[in-house]
Design a protein around this nucleic acid. Structure first.
Lengths: 142, 142
DNA sequence: ATACGAGTTAAAGTGCGCTTTAAGTCAAGC
DNA sequence: GCTTGACTTAAAGCGCACTTTAACTCGTAT
């Protein structure tokens, strides 16, 4: 039960679906594991690696960024240094996202305080509260 | 040039691609416009409506929500009341997003302060800073 | 006449992170 | 011998908001 877990057990242990683990393998986050009659067998180190992956994902890193963290640096680069590099960029992205959220909040709270009875009436009044950047929106998370 | 703009002109005026305008029409955000020999002709009111759509999108509403705002209420419901209803929900979503961002920020700043030389070494150390919710992540905007 | 630019359509493509499906293999229990 | 459950693969599907493509039609300028 220690060095030879099948994928289902590993998945339960990690709180993931087996398909996600296979996907991570294909994506280069996990090495090809040993096999017994065609089936993957995992040791405790893979469970540990999945915990790291989960941490990275929870911190907002994409699969590609997580792969970079795991294997995209010179082997001499320490985990701490890798994390600093990637976290710096990610924090900037999060800052941008936070600002977009703040802007949306502002729009949600400040718009349509008009007394128009029909939308066609507002259509003229809106002109003032013009939006600068027509692109981008967010919301919708699984 | 006032009540009979072709789609290209409208698109430029609104800062959108013609394909987006056709898409909005198919999605039910815009009414089918008058046509001249098969081609769409728009008046100033459509430009105004596009400004409203842009505002709604910038505020974080999805296409479906925007359609609800425009035509999903009883005609007697004022724009202000419609907006209040939808904005309330959206603000709650934004609050949730903001919290996720805060959590990601925290993880980014607090993780991997270990002195491990290789990731395999951290794999044991990580166990402590366990993540609660294995699902969900964000980042990556067009 | 004919080339050009702008319009038309339906259908497929994009990005991301998986999940789902279909069709098959394998070992263990009855 | 046969069912059951867990595994295998490659490929397709999902959600969202558009964009891109391919093949075609217009009116206008040369």
């Amino acid at each position: 039960m220690q060095p030879v877990m099948p994928i289902g057990k590993l998945a339960r242990a990690a709180g993931l679906a087996p398909s996600a683990i296979r996907y991570y393998e294909k994506a280069g986050l996990l090495p090809r594991p040993v096999r017994q009659s065609g089936q993957r067998r995992y040791g405790a180190q893979t469970a540990a690696r999945l915990r790291i992956i989960r941490l990275a994902r929870a911190a907002g890193f994409t699969i590609a960024e997580t792969r970079t963290f795991l294997s995209g640096f010179s082997p001499a680069t320490t985990p701490a240094a890798r994390w600093r590099t990637l976290a710096g960029r990610k924090l900037a992205e999060l800052e941008a996202q936070a600002q977009r959220i703040a802007r949306m909040r502002q729009l949600l709270e400040s718009s349509f305080h008009c007394g128009c009875l029909r939308i066609e009436d507002c259509e003229r009044a809106i002109a003032a509260c013009e939006v600068k950047d027509p692109r981008r929106s967010v919301s919708a998370r699984k």
